[in-house]
Design a protein around this nucleic acid. Structure first.
Lengths: 249, 249
DNA sequence: CATTTAGCTGCATAAAGGTGCATAAAAACG
DNA sequence: CGTTTTTATGCACCTTTATGCAGCTAAATG
């Protein structure tokens, strides 16, 4: 096995499982642990993974499970929220996921907007409730304490009955090949249902999460209509997505 | 399991339950308590959690558990909440309204209780979510911003499909002749539906509200099975209700 | 204030990491 | 084609890290 090939394999494993152990990899690939360690070191130097004692972790692991709440990403999210808010017109029916970006969106809505927002996320709904003129609909079902959203057959079937104008999703990972992915099975179920029930799918994410992968698949790139990040639309990082036919704001 | 991974897990648990015990974590992850203690120490040094004797707390713990907001007659409501919590057995399906008394109830639930709680009140559900073992079901529909509950045909019909063991209502007025009454039409609709969908109706109220009247009728005295106030059951103020066949606690 | 439980310190150990070197394969070169 | 250079890998040796354990100290709780 070639060195590059091996490193590509390792990177794939890291992105897939969010972690790898040096010991296991060396058994699997049948090279010494020294070699694996050198590979991990090189990948880490290139910024592709995060090396830790005993193995390595993916970037998304760090962000998702081990949040280092930096102030910058908050600002980025405000920029994203403002761009997204501009898409919403009076009278629209908007389906949204949860997440910090969506909460920023709720705060960024213009004061006189008259639209209907539907969500299964308790924190998002709490924020929507602060708005004076919008209507808010909570999707009912069992509550997942970890993700603070309602989830279950009831919620999914309720979403399926809807035909929303807009679906705004805060996403945790997007990649040209795999589309959007996430790490919470329940959240994914809800997002999948939402995508099927809206005319226009808008994905919101900070640029760090572009070209990253999470274990569970939500939808392919071609289902996404609009992608919003904090970057200007002509940023080279976004070019592949524009080429793939997505409107980038 | 990698150290970072373990710490991420611990952090997740802390954020989920607002607290963790070193002893439980060490059993769960199968490492010594020393290791857990060192992990907690490191997480605390990074400012991610608050270390205390025996375990750790999340930053939100203080806010969540000691809100000094407009909950008047807090002590009385705690007494009521404790009496009500004693009625709930493992495996029960409990339908509840919202209100400050119900929020106290959510806080008074025994830690190891395994029951299912259903409510349309966002503040109540938020509080139920803090509990480690109960299941929480949110009733979905349009949200009334004034009362912070979901209300509408959808919510009512959902409640009607339920057959709950217990219905716990925080009430704003009760009177021998008129039964329970309230001042918010939307809240009343929800409570009426709940009363029809439960085996046993329990009303919770502070004694000031006994023998008072509100404009909108919820239900007559004879539909009420149990009345809970902060007073001892033999208080003369409660005698007429006992005579009317209500169990008073 | 005594008893139980958690926490701390120092130490031992095993696993992982790092360094330098030997070797072999691949690549470059004359 | 033979020689030299480069690159990749493994090994031996030592260092660092992670973890558990023993014995003592501090904190909580009734």
């Amino acid at each position: 096995m070639l060195k590059k090939e091996r490193q590509a394999y390792i990177l794939h494993q890291v992105n897939l499982h969010n972690k790898v152990l040096s010991s296991l990899l060396s058994q699997e690939i049948r090279v010494s642990e020294d070699t694996i360690r050198r590979d991990l070191q090189e990948l880490a130097d290139e910024g592709k993974i995060i090396k830790v004692h005993g193995g390595a972790l993916s970037h998304s692991f760090n962000e998702v499970y081990y949040p280092t709440d930096n102030v910058y990403s908050q600002d980025h999210k405000k920029i994203i929220a403002n761009k997204a808010a501009a898409l919403i017109q009076n009278g629209m029916f908007v389906l949204t996921s949860g997440g910090t970006t969506i909460i920023e969106l709720a705060r960024a809505l213009p004061r006189q907007l008259k639209a209907t927002f539907m969500s299964g996320s308790i924190p998002a709904v709490l924020e929507y409730m602060q708005h004076p003129t919008i209507d808010v609909i909570m999707i009912g079902d069992r509550i997942s304490k970890s993700s603070k959203i309602t989830i279950g057959a009831e919620a999914i079937s309720k979403i399926k009955q809807i035909n929303a104008d807009l679906c705004l999703l805060g996403i945790n990972a997007i990649d040209l090949k795999h589309g959007t992915t996430d790490n919470d099975w329940e959240v994914v179920q809800l997002k999948k249902a939402m995508i099927q029930s809206a005319q226009k799918i808008v994905c919101l994410t900070i640029s760090e999460k572009i070209n990253t992968l999470q274990p569970i698949h939500i939808c392919d790139i071609q289902h996404i209509d609009v992608l919003i990040t904090e970057l200007p639309p002509d940023d080279p990082k976004l070019k592949p997505y524009i080429d793939a036919g997505i409107q980038v704001l």
